[in-house]
Write a protein that binds this DNA or RNA. Structure first.
Lengths: 136, 136
DNA sequence: ATCAATCGGACCGATTTGGTCCGATTAAGC
DNA sequence: GCTTAATCGGACCAAATCGGTCCGATTGAT
């Protein structure tokens, strides 16, 4: 019942990237310096985030990264799904057959819980996270 | 972002145990037969569930298991926490220092998400799960 | 006191996760 | 047009956790 470290890091990294949104491009190395994460780890993250369409990467000298969408249109749920894949608490939510399929009275309830979690994550846009410790 | 298989199994096993509530005691072997899970796995589960105070075990010949509380007073959150430990999406929710502590603007938001998830799990008592496929 | 049936904990293999490294690609500069 | 430099992208490897299996300790009935 725990979020993977990578997903946690990704949220922090995207939060840092959103601060560079006005100033144009940033780089994986810069994000690593600001977040304190290892550079290769950040590179791995931006790969997945780019593939998911959350970041837009420009290669070559002078290249870098920028948000593919406005920060307000990116939620924690988007970031988590980009790194960990679809949010599914149990295998049967994704369609896999559980081994007690014939009389599994629990099955119908999981999608409800699943959507509750997803809704909680989708309710937090990147703009809200960028406000440094205002709600602490 | 996925529940462990053990936690999923534990919910199913507890659901099966609740059906024996009126009839008194059951056993790990019986639960295994009803759920289709391997016997040793169920034994492992009942150990943790007993330690968490959700099941009461009686040892010796003719012993067995029974719910320690009424089924209505046991929620999915209780079962998940019994098997997986406290529900904490990130390490910082539990008090551990993240390595970007000094300016982690994300940190204040995790407890909110965490409670939303926990609330969704705590809203489902065992009695609701026992109703076989009524809400499908 | 013996026996039988149960739970409880310890051991082992497998999968996933997290971290590191090197190569492919691209744009700028000469 | 070529060289150079800086970047992203994917492949490789170690570690931790998870899942499964087994055997021993404890307890009540006979």
């Amino acid at each position: 019942m725990r979020l993977s470290n990578l997903a946690d890091y990704a949220v922090v990294a995207m939060c840092a990237a959103s601060r560079h949104c006005g100033g144009g491009k940033t780089s994986a190395a810069e994000l690593a310096a600001e977040t304190g994460l290892p550079v290769p780890t950040v590179q791995k993250l931006v790969s997945k985030l780019s593939a998911a369409g959350l970041l837009r990467s420009t290669r070559g000298a002078g290249g870098g990264l920028q948000l593919a969408r406005p920060a307000a249109a990116i939620t924690v749920a988007d970031i988590v799904e980009a790194v960990e894949g679809p949010i599914a608490l149990t295998a049967c939510v994704e369609g896999a057959d559980c081994l007690v399929e014939h009389d599994c009275s629990v099955k119908p309830h999981w999608p409800v819980v699943n959507e509750a979690l997803r809704g909680a994550l989708a309710a937090i846009p990147l703009t809200q996270l960028a406000r440094t410790r205002e709600i602490a």
